[in-house]
Design a binder for these strands. Structure first.
Lengths: 115, 115
DNA sequence: CTCATTCGCAACCAGGAGGTTGCCAATGAC
DNA sequence: GTCATTGGCAACCTCCTGGTTGCGAATGAG
């Protein structure tokens, strides 16, 4: 079954890395920031004030959707995208853990030195 | 001067995207997790139990260093890498902001509906 | 019905990311 | 002094990414 702790950890790493990878692009990060403002937006709306083509925006939205960061919904001839905050939360928690590990390590080092 | 809010926001987006991009790879994320355990490690140490070559690990470490996530220090013939938690903290705060925006948007929507 | 919007699909392209191998220099161990 | 470790540098390869253009299909507006 290979459900060892290290295997599970590796899975978590990969899944989390996918989220970070989706966020690791200025255009996509701006899209997420825009969508987190609240209202769902159509592709054309999102591409309107951008220097890029609608097609480029579409591709970025597909990347975000594949990572679970946004959701798609068709309304008439429009395709509306909305924020999906769960993976964002997961990513934030991952950084929480790493930061806490680091702090604890510094703490141990400090007590070791002061002893 | 072009120091408008939107320009500053775009800069922040790009800088933060660079950090996320550096974290957006399973190998690099594992390296960060490993280094956040506390002790600085040499390249050979980090590559020891990996399926990848030492060269590959070296490249990943260079990416992490360019993003400011780790720091390098030469000690004799070894090159020690250590965690640098500041950018991690920045990235986490960015996710905090996005999450809070989303929550507020949901709150506004709720009051709008209930009114 | 007609027509402008909105979008998806496919082909294509340049460049960068991830990885390998080979080789050489520096450095510590004995 | 000799030798094994350690790692930097460069060349090379493959594949994915980010972007474009062109075109055709739905779909709402008039």
């Amino acid at each position: 079954m290979s459900s060892s702790a290290s295997a599970r950890r590796a899975d978590t790493d990969e899944a989390t890395a996918a989220i970070f990878a989706a966020l690791g692009d200025g255009t996509r990060l701006a899209l997420v920031a825009r969508l987190s403002q609240g209202s769902a937006c159509s592709i054309s709306q999102l591409a309107e004030h951008s220097a890029l083509t609608r097609q480029a925006i579409t591709k970025h939205l597909q990347v975000l959707e594949k990572a679970g960061l946004v959701s798609r919904r068709k309304s008439g001839r429009e395709t509306l995208y909305a924020c999906q905050p769960r993976p964002l939360h997961d990513a934030r928690r991952y950084l929480d853990v790493v930061e806490r590990q680091w702090d604890q390590a510094l703490g141990r080092l400090k007590t070791f030195i002061e002893r």
